[in-house]
Amino acid sequence: MEDLSGFPLEIVGENSPMVSFKKVRKSYGSLVVLDDLDLDVAAGEMVSVIGPSGSGKTTVLRMLMTLEKINGGVIYVDGKPLTHMDKGGKLLLANDKHLRTRRSDIGMCFQHFNLFPHMTAIQNCMEGPVQVLGLSKAEARDRGEELLELVGMIDKKDQHPSRLSGGQQQRVAIARALAMRPKVMLFDEVTSALDPEVIGEVTNVIRKLVSEHNLTMLMVTHQMGFARDISDRVCFFYGGKIEEQGPPAELFGNPKRERTQQFLSAVKEAV
């Protein structure tokens, strides 16, 4: 078994990060997808993740959402281990119960929305609060309606997902995730499956979240302009590692690494 004695049981201190990947490794068979990844995200920070296909961007988010098992290292959320639990001063791989208590800090939006098709928009937003958080139906409905208002979907609250456009479904999905009151929100290419003309309605919602809410956000995106606009920091992933990171103006305006330069110019040509 992996020796985790070098990893802290807790990260304390005023400036301790909201999310911390420490030497995180992920592989599928012999394919190493994340290679000793270190990444800290401060509370309230908006970090964009960019990089070529297969560089491990989605995997980073999925591990943080605990949808994938970790093969090495530790992930901390809000100072406490997420992927592991403290058993008598030793870090052991988290069991289901531990994951369920720690996972509540994190929410995620997917490329293909994944709304529950047998529920209306408002029911999608109420499901977690009622079934998981134990809110009353009335409380959950209030909360859901408030959030559907925020994402501009209150008019369609009684529609099933099959009656909504992609952009509308994605906005409901954002409301559904927010209804759980997470501290950290994850966005995995939330505009990639959308028609160009509706991308704006989703990015505007994310903009609003950045400016009006104190959420910590991690966003994988192929929209460089959007990432540049709203991020506090941009991470360029290459081969399961962070090849380069920095404030958007620097990373986009003056990339230092050759691979970053190549990627950015290839993206520019494609547009």
């Binding site: 959402m65 605990t66 949808l67 289901d96 369920r100 996972r103 509540s104 994190i106 929410g107 995620m108 997917f110 293909h112 994944n114 709304l115 529950f116 499901e127 977690g128 079934q131 998981v132 999905a173 559904r176 995730a177 759980m180």
Partner: peptide
């Protein structure tokens, strides 16, 4: 698979 993942993302227990 996305349905399982979305349910997990809102922290539902396996039974629910």
């Amino acid at each position: 698979k996305g349905q399982w993942e979305a349910a997990t993302a809102i922290n539902m227990s396996a039974a629910r």
